[in-house]
């Protein structure tokens, strides 16, 4: 290997005298976050921060809160979180860009996620995604219709949604629509476009993307109502049912919890 003559220092052209830099201890953060984040949102922000032993833990929920207000995370939203948690906007932006669920451009009224991981894909998930993409005329993380307006839909392909026994799976605003076909998924999307709200296979009645994001921030409306709804699909219960049919049970539990082992001796 031949090395260039001299050292990098002597080789480089004499640098021009640097402009004098003055160190500004406070990074300019632009104007304060917009009035979009109203009193109610600020109140909720405090509530969320108070849940944690350390405030910064509230960042993920706060970003969900921002999405419930904006329908995505804007530069303004980043500034809002930075102010609330006394972080730099760079620190918040680094977090936003890391996570798939934080969207960088405005979302539709609904977010439709099609699982295209291997198992769902093999059972038709890829085909469902292709069909919906054609039908809506949009690709991954693109929105059909004016974002936020009734019937507007953001489409995405998703990784395994942890419902593989119900494959292929589609989610709308993170509610499950199980065992889909290209036809059922197309009908689902058409209904959404007509501003209808088909009921998920499991979960609460459908709302919209922003309401779902508010719940992800841990702000639940009427939780006693929304926890209801179908939960265990027939697939979920197959083992339990087969066991019941066959009379299979786990060894029976004693009537009272048995005595605990004695305290181990201190070493």
């Amino acid at each position: 290997m031949t090395l260039p003559e001299g050292t990098p220092e002597t080789n480089s052209a004499a640098p021009a005298a640097p402009q004098e830099l003055t160190w500004k201890p406070v990074v300019e953060e632009g104007p304060p976050a917009s009035p979009m984040f109203d009193e109610l949102t600020r109140q909720r922000t405090k509530e969320i921060i108070a849940r944690y032993p350390q405030p910064r833990s509230a960042l993920l929920p706060l970003l969900h809160l921002v999405q419930s207000v904006e329908g995505f995370v804007s530069q303004d939203g980043i500034r809002y979180c930075a102010e609330a948690l006394e972080l730099s906007t760079a620190e918040v932006a680094a977090v936003v860009t890391f996570y798939t669920m934080y969207k960088r451009s405005p979302c539709g009224q609904h977010l439709v996620s099609v699982c295209t991981n291997t198992l769902c894909a093999a059972l038709g998930g890829d085909e469902i995604y292709r069909r919906l993409s054609e039908k809506l005329g949009v690709g991954h993380e693109e929105t059909a219709g004016e974002p936020g307006s009734p019937g507007s839909i953001t489409l995405e392909h998703a990784e395994c949604l942890a419902a593989c026994d119900l494959a292929p799976v589609v989610q709308v605003n993170y509610e499950y629509f199980d065992n889909q076909t290209t036809e059922s998924a197309t009908e689902l999307v058409e209904a959404l476009q007509r501003d209808e709200k088909p009921h998920p296979t499991r979960g609460a009645p459908l709302t919209d993307f922003r309401t779902a994001e508010l719940e992800l921030a841990g702000i639940h409306g009427d939780l006693e109502q929304s926890v209801e709804g179908p939960s265990a699909a027939k697939e979920t219960l197959r083992g339990v049912q087969l066991a019941a049919e066959c009379g299979w049970v786990a060894p029976s539990l004693p009537a009272e919890p048995p005595a605990l082992p004695p305290l181990p001796e201190k070493k």
């Binding site: 989610q171 499950y176 979960g203």
Partner: peptide, 10 residues
Amino acid sequence: RGEALHCIRR
């Protein structure tokens, strides 16, 4: 997991 909204409610 964030995508498990109904679980979070429950």
